[in-house]
């Protein structure tokens, strides 16, 4: 299943964001951030303890099931008073959750996490970015491996000169997308597809911010 992959912000950054903020309500999420252990119930509790130890007042906390869904009436009712007492909401969800909550509650929000990418758990504890949602899908010619996402430079005509033993020039832990694409196409007997000179990419697929209105 596709997930929002997050990482906790560096401590100093969070301290700075919470500088001058005394009363805090913390929100976690039971879905993606629970899986990545960045904003599930245990992390929310640990955060509460850390903040209390540093002299902040935590008015309350909740781990909602799916933070990118609108908050249910039950949650706003049950925690309404604690939320009201806080000057700031510290949100331990991905940026989708932060924005959904910010749009519903009239409070300043501070994200406790950075949202890194939309990806998949490809092995236990390992997450990889799969699609950057560019709006002009070209993987029909690359054997189903996306060079826009998986190549650090988003190259569409083959590898740069930086490939080293099939790894990317920026990080030996990252596979070179073009080694993968080559191997895939070779296996399928379709290297002809890689030989075709691809035109410059079309960035007009869906100009950001994306918006789709369905007719009828």
């Amino acid at each position: 299943m596709i997930r929002s992959i997050t990482q906790q912000k560096p401590e100093e950054e969070l301290e700075e964001l919470l500088n001058g903020v005394n009363r805090i309500f913390i929100v976690g999420c039971g879905t993606c951030v629970t899986m990545t252990r960045t904003g599930g119930e245990p992390e929310v509790v640990a955060m509460r303890e850390k903040l209390s130890a540093s002299g902040k007042m935590v008015t309350g906390h909740v781990t909602v099931p799916v933070a990118c869904d609108n908050l249910t009436g039950e949650i706003t009712e049950e925690y309404g008073e604690q939320i009201e007492q806080a000057d700031t909401l510290l949100i331990m969800t991905c940026a989708f959750g932060v924005q959904t909550i910010a749009g519903q509650l009239r409070k300043m929000v501070v994200p406790a996490l950075d949202t890194l990418f939309i990806g998949k758990e490809t092995a236990h504890g390992e997450f990889n970015e799969i699609c950057t949602q560019c709006g002009t899908c070209i993987i029909g010619e690359t054997g189903g491996v996306c060079p826009v996402t998986a190549c650090h430079k988003g190259l569409v005509n083959g590898p740069c000169g930086g490939t080293d033993q099939g790894r990317c020039e920026i990080d030996k832990d990252k596979a070179c997308a073009w080694t993968k694409i080559y191997n895939r196409l070779d296996e399928l007997g379709r290297l002809d597809s890689m030989r075709k000179l691809q035109k410059p990419r079309n960035y007009l697929g869906e100009p950001s911010p994306g918006k789709l209105v369905m007719n009828g």
Binding site: N157, G158, T163, G166, Y182, M194, R195
Partner: peptide
Amino acid sequence: EANPIDPQLIK
């Protein structure tokens, strides 16, 4: 001397 060389040669 790229490694692997074949994708490099296509480019």
